[in-house]
Design a protein around this nucleic acid. Structure first.
Length: 916
RNA sequence: GGGCGCUUAGCUCAGCGGGAGAGCGUCCGCCUUACACGCGGAAGGGCAGAGGUUCGAAUCCUCUAGCGCCCA
């Protein structure tokens, strides 16, 4: 069957994905006969579209899962999406305000106002808001599913999960209740990060710090008794309204006499103690700082140590409350301005300096966060973290690249309690009920009908939802049906691989390990691969505002998904980032074209076949061995090119497997790229043409056998990277070992095919042919024109080689005649190439550019001499001879000999040229 | 302030203890019936700098400089 001239990705991708799915190849089932290999997808947020980072991570997972599936494992890739509590909540609020969600509102039956005024969540109420969330999920969740399918991801779609679906919600409730009963979850008043726009608490991880240019205000706090003042420096003068102390370092000589005295807070005239605390930085400002326990984390700690009062001066929207006295009901920045003005007016503002400092922003809406005292739900982490540290230390879970373990340890060893409640609606509502009568809290799996303490029916469920990462932490076992004891859990848990970005190592990876160990008593995965973060070609983050985004689906449209997948794999080295440009994708698209045409050529020459099925003996030399009685053993061995390509194939198989097992996707892709293009296409196919086009039927059949075998293995090796095109070709093979390449056996190396002799001979052959080509090219010999070739060589092996493979000199180097031998004359005026073990001359009519020839030979002589000297230096060094391994010494000796020969040949040739 | 990483050919990056590599770009020839998304050939590198370890360093260690990231 012949291949069309060009590969059509669009048609093939759709066709084969549907076919694979119809044949249920993606499905992983509990199967005691096979070893499981499971991956649980990092669930994409239902916030919108898949970006290049998703394309990368899911391509990598698909490569691994396809590889393992072909390699005989019961492979199962669990897909799903994340409800992304705060992210989606914010997007919905934004959409409501801009009235971009009216169609969804109609869909859920909400009476949409006719005017265009912005809507808020309180307009909708909690019930409609949740309905809207689900409508959103249905729209974007399915979009993401379609995009993953477009990528070619071989997920087991029967097992698709959603972090907020019924089964996962059950797991969340179960975990919350158990952790509460075990005392890990508590409710308490803490200083937390508050987003005034989202009006919710945020964990430290959800706060992004940015260096911001601000000002440092020096404010005078007069002494309560006597004259004078203490000057404190602050970046946030408005928070002085909540000050309950002034602190200095205990060793600070400047303030020794003042410790224990009192100062008067300007504007509010409050009396503040002057205290000493180790955490005060003597170098900062004046060395004296105001203490605002209600609005600063370090001040909160200082306040706690010294029993200072906590005053909260802000409302939930970061406007000032009645505690701000005359400054109440102002936005925090307006309050700052008023405070500064009044201080100035009273002569208490000493000076103002420029000052850059890190300001926390909400990860989702980018509003400046406000530290506030608030009642929240927390998880005690220390005890959970300990076993999770151990499994990394012991290597039970392996991080790849390994350096991420340090980041993990640093965070885990200093872990702080996790605030898990969020004042949002879209998410898992906390399974706790507050009693209006006795104030007790009832935490339960099912909504209780009465307070567990006083049995009052006057109870109300907690308004808050859980941090979105709470459900993510359970993902590896919740997708398998936990808390049910499912066969899937027993068979597929722990999974073999988690592939993710290092940006969520704390958010997600660490918490999955802790929860997995706590609830499953087992690690959730054996290995974590941290893929690089995708940047544009200049190392800039891709963003819509910069206009440098490369959209995966657009690339699919333009170059086909295989081209993008192969590019992502080929560029995926184990660094922190990976730069991607459209040109890269274009380049790998060319490889696909090359592969397509190599296959096209092969198929053209494999069919119709006179020799029936393509066979290949599996012995090293190609002997068919004993057949039936009376039949002769096929005595003839395999020719050089066959031995060579099979040897190279064997190395490629070994290298590909080794690279994939180490998640060195770039190495795997590069090895295959080089093998297919440079070994198979550039040399093997060209050499095989001699037999394929020849009249010797047996030789032709033998070539066909090898050609078919190698092509088949190439398709199998490449399939995990480029599933569509390999399947398209596979389906047109004249014979197939399986109905789809997806379920074929991944190639296994046959070490008996490693053939160093063939590789050595081939290397010399290639060097000679290349030398002839170089001469011809430099002399501008037209490609068709045949020319005589002289090869001066003393070694019998080289002479043998040339006479054995004369045909390749004729076919690959347009030689009309090849003369070889120790006494081949050195033509005076012929251009030449000097190798270590031979000299190649192509005598040509016309003038030789003597100058150019001289220059090149001299340059080569220089290099050869330098090489010789360096080698001799080593060999003259007794310590080298004593300490270096024998094989290295042998190698150096060989090198020295080669260099010596080359130098000698070059010298003679130069002398000859000079004489002419 | 603490930590991590990067610095190799014009560009983007591999290599990470024994003769400096790839892709793209550049230059020169070629539409050689698988492929011009191609074929053949060529030019182009004090492997950031300084020390050290080693028989041997782009590769290991230390320091310095520049760039980037993370945590506080």
């Amino acid at each position: 069957m012949e291949l069309p001239k060009a590969y059509d990705p669009k048609e093939a991708e759709e066709k084969w994905y549907a076919c694979w799915e119809a044949h249920r190849y993606f499905e992983g089932t509990v199967n005691a006969q096979k070893k499981p290999f499971a991956i649980v997808i990092p669930p994409p947020n239902i916030t919108g579209e898949l970006h290049m980072g998703h394309a990368l991570n899911n391509t990598l997972q698909d490569i691994v899962i396809r590889y393992k599936r072909m390699d005989g494992y019961e492979a199962c890739w669990f897909p799903g999406t994340d409800h992304a509590s705060i992210a989606v909540h914010v997007l919905i609020e934004r959409g409501l305000a801009k009235r971009q969600l009216d169609d969804l509102l109609h869909e859920i039956g909400y009476p949409v106002p006719a005017d265009k005024r912005p809507l808020t969540r309180s307009d909708l109420g909690r019930e409609y808001f949740m309905k809207l969330g689900w409508a959103w999920k249905n729209r974007y969740g399915s979009k993401i599913r379609e995009q993953l399918r477009a990528l070619g991801c071989s997920c087991d779609w029967r097992r698709e999960s959603f972090t907020l679906d019924e089964a996962r919600s059950r797991a969340v409730t179960e975990v919350f209740v158990r952790l509460y009963e075990e005392g890990f979850i508590y409710r308490g008043d803490r200083l937390i990060n508050w987003c005034p726009r989202c009006q919710t608490v945020l964990s430290d991880l959800e706060v992004e710090r940015e260096e911001t240019e601000g000002q440092l205000y020096y404010i005078r706090y007069p002494f309560a008794e006597g004259e004078g003042f203490v000057t404190v420096a602050t970046t946030r003068p408005e928070t002085m309204l909540g000050d309950t102390g002034v602190a200095v370092h205990p060793d600070d000589g400047r303030y020794q006499d003042l410790i224990g005295k009192f100062v008067i807070l300007p504007l509010l005239e409050r009396k503040l103690p002057l205290i000493a605390d180790e955490t005060v930085d003597k170098e900062f400002g004046t060395g004296a700082v105001k203490v605002t326990p209600g609005h600063d984390p370090t001040d909160f700690e200082i306040g706690r140590r010294h029993g200072l009062k906590i005053i909260n001066i802000f409302n939930a929207d970061a406007t000032t409350n009645e505690n701000a006295g005359p400054y109440k009901n102002l936005d925090r920045y307006a309050a700052r301005q008023r405070v500064v003005e009044d201080l100035k007016a009273q002569g208490l503002l000493e000076r103002v300096e420029k000052h850059t400092h890190a300001v926390g922003h909400c990860q989702r809406c980018h509003t400046v966060i406000e530290p506030l005292i608030s009642t929240q739900w927390f998880v005690r982490m220390k005890e959970l973290a300990e076993p999770a540290i151990n499994v990394i230390e012991s290597g039970e879970i392996q991080f790849i690249p390994e350096r991420w373990t340090k980041v993990y340890f640093d965070w885990m060893r200093n872990i702080r309690d996790w605030p898990i409640s969020r004042q949002l609606w879209w998410g898992h509502r906390i399974p706790a009920w507050h009693c209006a009568d006795c104030k007790a809290i009832t935490v339960a799996r099912q909504a209780p009908s009465a307070c567990s303490r006083c049995h009052s029916q006057n109870i109300k469920q907690d308004e808050d939802v859980l941090d979105t990462w709470f459900s993510s932490a359970l993902w590896p076992f919740s997708v398998m049906g936990w808390p049910e004891e499912t066969p899937e859990l027993r068979y597929f848990y722990p999974t073999q691989l988690l592939s993710t970005g290092h940006d969520i190592i704390f958010f997600w990876v660490a918490r999955m390990i802790m929860m997995g160990l706590h609830f499953m008593k087992k690690i959730p995965f054996e290995r974590v691969f941290f893929h690089p973060i995708i940047k544009d070609e200049h190392g800039q983050k891709m963003s819509k505002s910069k206009g440098n985004v490369i959209d995966p689906l657009q690339m699919k449209e333009k170059y086909g998904m295989d081209a993008l997948r192969l590019t992502l794999a080929a560029l995926c080295a184990q660094g922190k980032e990976m730069r991607l440009s459209v040109q890269d994708i274009e380049g790998y698209k060319k490889f696909l074209n090359k592969l397509w045409n190599a296959a096209r050529f092969s198929l053209m020459n494999l069919s119709p076949s006179s020799s029936g099925p393509f066979t290949l003996s599996l012995s090293r030399r190609g002997e068919m061995g004993q057949r039936g009685e009376g039949e002769e053993v096929e005595g003839e061995g395999r020719p050089l090119e066959d031995r060579w390509i099979l040897s190279r194939l064997t190395r490629t198989i070994m290298q590909t497997r080794a690279s994939l097992d180490r998640y060195e996707f770039n190495q795997a892709a590069k090895g295959l790229y080089d093998f297919v293009w440079h070994d198979f296409c550039d040399w093997y196919l060209e050499m095989a043409k001699v037999r394929l086009y020849g009249s010797d039927a047996a030789a032709k059949a033998q070539a066909q056998g090898v050609l078919f075998y190698v092509l088949t293995d190439i398709l199998k090796l490449l399939h995990p990277f480029i599933p569509f095109i390999t399947e398209e070709i596979w389906q047109r093979l004249p014979q197939r070992e399986s109905e789809s390449v997806m379920i074929a056996q991944y190639p296994t190396a046959r070490p008996e095919w490693l053939d160093e002799e063939a590789e050595r001979i081939m290397q010399k052959l290639q060097a000679l042919i290349t030398a002839i080509r170089t001469i011809r090219s430099e002399m501008n010999v037209p490609p068709h024109k045949r020319a005589k070739v002289f090869i001066k060589a003393e070694a019998p092996a080289v002479q043998q080689l040339v006479s054995d493979y004369k045909i390749f000199f004729e076919e690959l180097a347009q030689a009309s005649e090849v003369l070889v031998g120790p006494s081949v004359e050195r033509p005076k005026n012929a251009p030449r190439m000097v190798l270590e073990w031979a000299e190649v001359f192509v005598p040509l009519e016309g003038l030789l550019d003597l100058k150019h020839e001289h220059k090149r030979l001299r340059q080569e002589l220089q290099e050869a001499r330098a090489g010789l000297e360096a080698t001799l230096r080593k060999l003259d060094n007794p310590e080298f001879l004593e300490r270096a391994p024998d094989e290295v010494i042998e190698k150096e000796k060989r090198k020295a000999q080669e260099f010596r020969e080359k130098v000698e040949r070059l010298e003679q040739n130069l002398k000859l040229l000079q004489g002419s």
